[in-house]
Nucleic acid binder design. Structure first.
Lengths: 203, 203
DNA sequence: ACTTTATTTGACTATTCAGTACAATTCATC
DNA sequence: GATGAATTGTACTGAATAGTCAAATAAAGT
């Protein structure tokens, strides 16, 4: 029964994600969203209830695409500390390659929408906490392998990685200079063993 | 000749600053601004041309109040490295004491308004660059006094301080736990001599 | 072919928004 | 206390906004 969707939901969500990412929540109108998603007014509201709900879905979609991709990148690295370095390398490449989708949709939105909406905020905050937990886990693996000192405060370092991630988003606005940004990253990661130590590969 | 202003300009600007700071640019309407500033429609536009121009003035006012205060704090410290620590201590106190004006108006706005307005963006970016230059200068003084290693990459560390500042803004959203935040700051500043080394005071 | 149900369409509403117009008011100066 | 420019109050405009609705359409099952 019934008729197929003209535009697949995931595709429409992806378009909305890019728009919110590049412009923020308030600066993005339903008209713009519609157009980018290839939907008419009615379909938009039929499919996504309203702008606010759409945004919540977009945040979830962001988690399942961008965030998951980076998580996989870290986990697939030859060692946890190389995973951390790869993560920041990926951020660097991403940011140098686009002016349009700067930083992280999650944290950008957390800053823009701080007190604006309870549900949205808590969604965004949970995204940040997820990262933090992931860093704690990754750094614990580093520690177990002796890649960082046993006495290191893992939670503090995890917080520092979050801070570095977000801090880079701001630096990118001012410097599009790879060498400089690389030096900031290296400096921030100097508690890790010197880069790309080749670890024992599996037979 | 003529009549005095009902509300002094600096006072109106201060009110506008707090509103923009807590809500961001787009989420703040002229109606709200008017009300907070104690002005009627006509006076608002008479005194501040329009919302956009007001915002530019607010950014300038922010520089002359909040930013200058912190700069003075750093410069008045017993040593440059203690100045850096004092700066982050001040940020920590500020953030723990208010939920309403989170982070830095300057960088928050840079993120919200990235591609929205050329003039505003370049104003905000110059604010970031000013800080960076200030950190370079401060760290150079540290180096001259032997507080940090001679071979340290000052520019990278300056970038790191900017990143740490901004990164904390995001962490504050999730953790209002002094001990944790303090540990992140300490961890980020561990290239400085251990805190509050009492330096030779002037006679 | 007909019915059912999901989707699409585009016109419509009501509200909020930034910004304007201009008359009324105030007050330092003459 | 009259003058006139600087300030204020308020009603207005037009554009953009988010969101609604009901009729039109397409597919799938009977």
């Amino acid at each position: 029964m019934s008729r197929a969707l003209k535009v697949p939901r995931h595709q429409a969500l992806q378009a909305a994600m890019l728009l919110f990412w590049s412009q923020g929540y308030h600066a993005t109108s339903v008209d713009q969203l519609q157009a980018a998603m290839g939907l008419q007014r009615g379909s938009f509201y039929y499919l996504f209830k309203d702008k606010r709900r759409l945004f919540l879905e977009v945040v979830a979609a962001y988690k399942n695409s961008v965030v998951e991709r980076r998580r996989t990148l870290v986990q697939g690295a030859s060692s946890p500390s190389n995973g951390v370095r790869l993560f920041f390398q990926d951020i660097l490449e991403h940011s140098l390659s686009t002016l349009v989708y700067p930083g992280c949709l999650n944290t950008n939105s957390a800053i823009e929408l701080g007190l604006f909406d309870q549900e949205i905020s808590s969604q965004l905050e949970s995204g940040i906490q997820t990262w933090e937990a992931f860093w704690v886990e990754t750094l614990t693996r580093c520690q177990a392998l002796g890649e960082i000192e046993a006495k290191s405060d893992i939670h503090a370092k995890a917080g520092l990685l979050i801070a570095l991630t977000q801090g880079l988003n701001v630096l990118f606005k001012v410097h599009r200079d790879r060498a400089f940004l690389q030096s900031v990253i290296d400096s921030g990661l100097d508690f890790l063993p010197a880069s790309s130590r080749v670890t024992v590969t599996q037979k």
